[in-house]
């Protein structure tokens, strides 16, 4: 069982979450050419090792998270909200806390 430290809920079993996918994909603008969309939708680095990926805490706070996880060992390096605004708030909180 992978245990994911959700920034909102605390550490929880991965069975509470669903795996999203590669977190480094930058989706193009809606009106971008289909070649750009093809690359974003169909092509993957498929990293063996530490990768940035999305998870959805679907049976918890329902937040999308960006997780740095080693795909070979399943070790988790970091977790932050996928929403950049929320992620920034967490960083500010942490700085304030220190």
């Amino acid at each position: 069982m992978i245990r994911i430290p959700c920034p909102f809920c605390g550490t929880r079993d991965h069975s509470e979450f669903t795996y999203g996918g590669d977190g480094t994909i930058e989706y193009p603008a809606l009106d971008a050419p289909k070649e750009d969309w093809h690359d974003a939708v169909f092509l993957r680095d498929n990293v063996c090792g530490m990768q940035l990926e999305t998870w959805h805490h679907v049976h918890g706070c329902r937040m999308w998270l960006l997780v740095e996880r080693d795909t070979l060992t399943h070790e988790i390096h970091s977790v932050r909200p996928a929403h950049p605004g929320l992620a920034a708030m967490f960083e500010t909180d942490q700085e304030a806390g220190e």
Binding site: I2, D13, T71, H74
Partner: peptide, 13 residues
């Protein structure tokens, strides 16, 4: 197992 992995071992769920 639903999440991407290169590990050749499974989990309980």
């Amino acid at each position: 197992d639903w999440y991407k992995s290169y590990a050749q071992r499974g989990n309980l769920p």
